[in-house]
């Protein structure tokens, strides 16, 4: 709480002091305007008169108090009390693509990931989220969108499919049309491609839905891929993992890899887990080996907070005026003063 125009207060105090001095200065001429009367006890001894005088004095006191309060609160309001706060605005212009390996070994981890994002989506405000599932071929379940109702609905369906609920397997249709299984590089490349093309700036800005507007807004959105895979490749992908990683790097997409099956033999760089880690970290993301699907929630939150920290804007000083209290007091005391003046009118 600070006063923006604090220098108003000394002159106001000075004026108030001068006014008080003038008001309370004994006026030798005061009785010249009045008529002299003798034996005033004829009137002043009357209990009725004493009661009326007491009432009069009480109203005078009320009026004086209200006038003082009005003055003080008006000066306080004029001095412009304001709250100065330093905020680090958290930017909510992130794009998150869930990139889930739908091979059978991954279903429990996938289920955990969609569940967590289903919960997170409730708190989203401006973020866009998309879901791509891949096995031998990648299939976009839904593109980047901020229609959170739709997102939740789709994530629910995805969770049902990953949990193997009866009648829900159709959700994964279209992920086996390629040759092989778990073509991770292709899947990651599809996910990276699912982001609006930042190269041709003109085309992408038109699809902006976050309301920030402006041609350069698209480039300012952070992009991340949550990639859940065990990186056990069987087949011949068009993109290798490294190529897809390079594509992600080129597009400015951070890859957060979750690996539920980190069974590397030794620290060699050729191991699947190590390769995944290298790809993720090369893109600026991170790699999280996953012991149990329950840890997904923690990891996702960590990813979220890293992202949030990375995207925080510069600290800004926010001045919020707080005139409500002094102005309310001024209004009330003004009303009281008006009432008392009406009561005191001769």
């Amino acid at each position: 709480m600070e006063l923006m125009f604090w220098w108003l207060i000394p002159p106001a105090l000075l004026l108030a002091a001068v006014a008080l001095w003038r008001a309370f200065r004994p006026d030798p001429q005061a009785n010249a305007r009045r008529r002299p009367v003798a034996n005033a006890d004829r009137l002043t001894a009357l209990p009725e008169y004493q009661a009326a005088l007491r009432r009069h004095r009480r109203w005078l006191a009320v009026a004086a108090l209200a006038a003082g309060t009005l003055l003080v609160s008006a000066v306080a309001a004029a001095a412009r009390p304001a709250e100065l706060t330093t905020v680090r605005p958290e930017q909510r212009n992130r794009d998150i693509m869930l990139c889930l390996d739908s091979s059978g070994s991954m279903s429990s981890a996938d289920s955990a990931v969609v569940e967590v994002f289903g919960m997170l989506a409730k708190e989203f405000d401006g973020e866009r989220i998309g879901l791509t599932i891949f096995d031998s071929s990648a299939m976009q379940a839904f593109p980047l969108t901020d229609d959170y109702e739709y997102v939740q609905e789709q994530l629910k369906a995805a969770k049902a499919a990953f949990d193997g609920d009866p009648g829900s397997a159709g959700f994964l249709d279209g992920t086996w049309s390629g040759r092989g299984s778990s073509l991770i590089g292709d899947g990651l490349a599809s996910c990276v491609n699912a982001f609006p093309d930042s190269g041709g700036a003109g085309a992408t800005t038109t699809s902006e839905t976050d309301g920030t507007g402006g041609a350069g807004a698209a480039t300012q959105r952070s992009r991340s891929v949550v990639l859940a895979t065990d990186n056990y490749l069987s087949g011949d992908p068009i993109f290798t993992l490294e190529q897809a990683g390079a594509l992600a790097q080129e597009r400015g997409v951070r890859v957060y890899a979750l690996n539920p099956g980190d069974f590397d033999y030794g620290p060699g760089p050729g191991q699947p887990g190590a390769r995944l880690r290298a790809t993720a970290e090369a893109s600026g993301g991170a790699y999280y080996p996953l012991d149990t699907p329950d840890a997904v929630a923690d990891i996702v939150r960590r990813v979220q907070s890293t992202e949030a920290a990375a995207m925080q804007g510069a600290p800004r000083t926010v001045v919020s005026d707080l005139p409500d209290v002094p102005l309310t007091v001024a209004l009330l005391s003004g009303l009281v003063l008006a009432g008392a003046s009406w009561r005191l009118r001769p």
Binding site: R35, A38, A40, T44, L46, Y49, A52, L53, P346
Partner: peptide
């Protein structure tokens, strides 16, 4: 016109004394 008591220079607000109740009592 307001009055003042010559005994102690105290002012006697005229509009108080003009009220019917006080006039009657006076």
């Amino acid at each position: 016109r307001d009055a003042f008591s010559v005994a102690d220079s105290a002012a006697l607000p005229g509009h108080l004394a003009a009220s019917p109740a006080i006039t009657e009592a006076y």
